[in-house]
């Protein structure tokens, strides 16, 4: 009887609340390793030091491929990340952001820095016009993109819409497909931050 009651309670808990101990993003086995690739980082004073895809020690790095003339996917994902970090509070200060432009012709360094600053206080913007270098990095993340000028002169950009959370060894811990939302990101970041703190304490 007690066992039955316990089972019933467990079931109720399972149904009634979301499981906050499980990652909702995609975790690949084996994990993708991206620490071996780099792209030039654009800063106010420097326009080209290589940035490697690993987080600082004790941090997590969120990586996103996008472009600033993107009205829908990019601002949705980046605003969701901003909301998730805000909800988590100061412990989310360890979450860093790397924004890579897939449209380097139109996205200048200045435009990129201004854009990224709308979504994060801690960020890196990465830009190269060397398309082989960009392709190498996209391949490492299993991502892709293209820029097409249409007959009417408008520019159509396609890109992988996922975001990636990378650890300090360059391993992709979680991949967030488009649409995971602020709630999914918050859930995963809380778990990853906890795991990181436990592993370093």
């Amino acid at each position: 009887m007690t066992a039955l009651l316990a089972l019933a309670i467990t079931s109720l808990v399972g149904c009634g609340s979301a499981d906050t101990t499980r990652i909702v993003g995609v975790q690949r086995t084996p994990a993708i390793e991206v620490g071996a690739v780099s792209l030039p980082e654009v800063t106010n004073s420097d326009t080209g030091s290589p940035f490697n895809f690993w987080a600082d020690s004790g941090s997590l790095l969120v990586v996103y491929f996008g472009f600033t003339n993107c009205p829908d996917l990019c601002p949705t994902t980046l605003a969701d990340l901003r909301t998730a970090r805000k909800r988590i509070g100061s412990t989310a200060d360890i979450v860093d952001l790397a924004l890579i432009t897939v449209d380097p012709v139109r996205d200048t360094a200045e435009v990129l820095r201004s854009y990224a600053g709308s979504f994060a206080t801690r960020f890196h913007v990465l830009r190269t016009t060397d398309l082989h270098a960009l392709a190498t990095v996209e391949t490492a993340f299993l991502a892709s993109s293209s820029v097409t000028t249409l007959a009417d002169g408008t520019v159509s950009v396609s890109h992988t819409a996922s975001a990636y959370v990378v650890d300090s060894t360059g391993r992709v811990l979680v991949e967030w497909p488009f649409g995971i939302g602020a709630k999914g990101m918050e859930n995963d970041l809380r778990i990853l931050i906890k795991q990181l703190k436990e592993s370093t304490s």
């Binding site: 996917l73 897939v102 398309l131 960009l134 392709a135 996209e138 391949t139 299993l142 991502a143 892709s144 993109s145 293209s146 159509s156 950009v157 396609s158 890109h159 992988t160 819409a161 996922s162 497909p177 488009f178």
Partner: peptide, 10 residues
């Protein structure tokens, strides 16, 4: 770039 492998949208 890198040929349409994963979650690419337009």
């Amino acid at each position: 770039i890198a040929g349409g492998m994963n979650g690419e949208m337009v």
